[in-house]
Design a protein around this nucleic acid. Structure first.
Length: 600
RNA sequence: GGGGUCGUAGCUCAAUUGGUUAGAGUAUCGGACUGUCGAUCCGAUGGUUGCGGGUUCGAGCCCCGUCGACCUCGCCA
């Protein structure tokens, strides 16, 4: 085994600093990134956390014999002299390609087995199962190292930015109490209070409001959140939020503050992208749903949903007659300069049925003086003219129509809108655009058929809009809008928040609308309502998904790539192999019995 | 819980759509080579085609089941 003195470790130079040591002897430590054996000379690329450097070992040296036996990913101690490369040997493709190190001494710090997959490739797919099991090797890959380093730099930028605006970062508890609304929570048994449980926070929502009552004024946190729901490419069971709350603030101030913040962030970390909307576009929830069929529309392209219901008041087409009888809608989107083949139309119809939940789709291809459509025999000339006018259809354009109840029509057309944009290469064309928008004016309440009562669409502390407060007492509760907002980027929800209720009477009225009994209110929200009795300042805030933000800034596609140790699709950690059973003694100590899974 | 895609050498992929002995690149091992930089050249090793069953004269390919990864619907105030 090789030995190293403290002095040697202390005089180690990282590779990125070698430019300062040309002509000098240095000590390097790192991994063999790649090796090139020639007849007369050996090249080793040595990699450390800061970069990589070509080592040169002429075969005339005594150490060459040993150097030939070294393998990729061996950990080396190297002593050598830094030299400027001669002009013809400079490699302009890599950082520090103008330098090399002539080795005088090599010691093997640690050997490595051949790796289960190569970490020195610039590109190429890898099975995620493998990557996760050997995440520590995956992290050696350049793209992963960059993601993790950039994540750090982005978070540091955020902390500095917030600090500059007098925000105070406060940590809030991980072991806390459940809230009945919202997502399913992760549960932690209490040993001291047997039969009782903590839950992990799905967000620090109530704590940040309590911090406002506590006089913090401006709070933020890089906060870990936990939600026990099924996963997606952009959803992990534990994820990181930038959580923000401010006192004495109105919605307009908050939106503008966040907007400037987003602009600074993207200009610093992804300057090649263009902001499509400056200032950010704002649309109501209603408009988002009816015009784009989504509460998080991708507005890098328009292709809005248009209403053709009125065209068919006198239709003879039985399908439409039935829909109209049920107070349904007939709406569509226009696809410019595109005629779908029979096969394409069939595929789109199938998507509409499978994903949208509708029964079919009708395509109308406008030609110079006629149309091509399976609907052609059912359309009167004046109906065709009206459709043409509504969609402003030119010869060559195709209109896709969906007829169903409003909710299904919007959802289906929202899905088709995205599918068509992908197929036509529109998505590819707009990939460098940033379509930031605020979705505002969310309804306060929704009617739950299952529970037969009103439920909040956001959370029960969300303030209604001032002008809608009277409607709480007389009027249609479903028409009440709130001071809630989501920030959407390229079809993905990046964050959301609201101005909160600080008036106790109003808060109680909301609980009343939700059909909550006084004892329920006290049991579930007593702590925060009590806090509000002692002079709560008006306040509001927002929370961002940091993982999604970093993914977009890094032009990635999965948040797993910007998380050092993520979980897989089934919420398992394949590296640590969690979750796992725990010992019988531990269960006993916690007063927990496991129900044996039923076997066939 | 539902739907979809995938699973072939350590890794990344192929196999003319059911037909002879399952191939290539890379890694690994051996050799050659005067400065390369994803070095190159020659040679070798490497396979229970995820697993179990079925159909067939014959299955990597078709069918059923199962396990796993990914995408997605429900779900995520």
């Amino acid at each position: 085994m090789e030995c190293f003195t403290d002095e040697e470790f202390q005089s180690r130079i990282t590779i990125k600093r070698l430019g300062e040591y040309v002509g000098k002897s240095v000590i390097l430590m790192g991994w063999i990134h790649r090796k090139r054996l020639h007849g007369q000379v050996i090249f080793l690329d040595l990699r450390d956390e800061s970069g990589f450097m070509q080592l040169v070992i002429p075969k005339t040296l005594e150490i060459a014999k040993m150097a030939e036996t070294l393998k990729e990913e061996f950990v080396l101690f190297v002593k050598g002299e830094v030299a400027q490369r001669s002009a013809e040997n400079i490699n302009p493709k890599v950082a520090l390609g103008n330098l090399e190190v002539f080795v005088s001494e090599i010691r093997v710090i640690n050997k490595s087995e051949p790796l289960p997959f190569a970490v020195n490739l610039y590109e190429g797919n890898l099975d995620e199962n493998l990557r996760m099991r050997y995440r520590y090797l995956d992290l050696r890959r350049d793209v992963m190292r960059q993601n993790i380093v950039m994540r750090h730099k982005i978070i540091k930028f955020i902390r500095d930015y917030m600090d500059n605006y007098d925000f105070v970062e406060v940590e809030t508890p991980m072991l806390t109490k459940g809230t009945p609304e919202g997502s399913r929570e992760y549960v932690v048994p209490s040993r001291i209070s047997k039969g009782q449980f903590y839950v992990l926070p799905q967000s620090p929502q109530q704590f940040k409001q309590l911090l406002m009552v506590g006089g913090l004024g401006r709070y933020f946190q890089i906060a870990r959140c936990f939600r026990d729901e099924d996963l997606r490419a952009d959803r992990q069971p534990e994820f990181t939020q930038l959580d923000i709350e401010m006192s004495y603030i109105c919605q307009e101030q908050l939106l503008q503050f966040i907007e400037s913040f987003m602009i600074s962030l993207f200009q610093k970390f992804n300057p090649e992208k263009n902001f499509k909307f400056m200032p950010f576009k704002r649309i109501s929830y209603y408009e988002a749903m009816t015009k784009y069929g989504s509460d998080k529309p991708d507005l890098r392209f328009d292709m809005p949903i248009m209403d053709a219901t009125d065209v068919f008041q006198d239709t003879t087409f039985q399908v439409f007659i039935n829909i109209l009888k049920e107070k349904g809608n007939i709406k569509g989107i226009k696809v410019e300069n595109k005629s779908f083949t029979v096969k394409e139309t069939k595929e789109l119809t199938q998507i509409a049925i499978d994903q949208g939940g509708t029964k079919g789709m009708f395509a109308i291809n406008f030609l110079e003086n006629s149309i091509k459509s399976s609907l052609a025999s059912h359309l009167k000339p004046e109906e065709i003219e009206k459709i043409k006018a509504i969609f402003d259809a030119k010869p060559g354009d195709t209109v896709l129509l969906i007829a169903d109840i409003a909710r299904v029509v919007h959802k289906t057309l929202g899905i088709l809108r995205l599918e068509v944009a992908r197929r036509l290469g529109i998505m590819e064309k707009v990939k460098n655009d940033l379509a930031f928008l605020w979705v505002i004016d969310f309804p306060l309440l929704d009617w739950s058929e299952e529970e037969n009562k009103y439920v909040t669409t956001h959370h029960p502390f969300t303030s209604p809009k001032d002008e809608d407060i009277p409607a709480l007492f007389s009027g249609d509760p479903l028409k009440i809008l709130t001071k809630a907002y989501d920030i959407v980027l390229n079809g993905s929800e990046m964050g959301g928040g609201s101005i909160r209720i600080h008036n106790q009477d109003l808060q109680h009225k909301i609980f009343e609308m939700l059909s909550l009994k006084e004892e329920d209110i006290q049991a579930r929200f007593g702590h925060i309502l009590r806090a509000f009795q002692y002079g709560a300042p008006p306040h509001g805030g927002i929370a961002f998904g940091i993982d999604r933000l970093v993914t977009v800034l890094q032009n990635g596609s999965s948040i797993r790539d910007v998380i050092a140790f993520p979980k897989n699709n089934s919420a398992r950690d394949l590296l640590m192999e969690a979750p796992s059973p725990i010992h019988e003694d531990q269960l006993k100590e916690l007063g927990i019995q496991i129900e044996k899974p039923k076997t066939e």
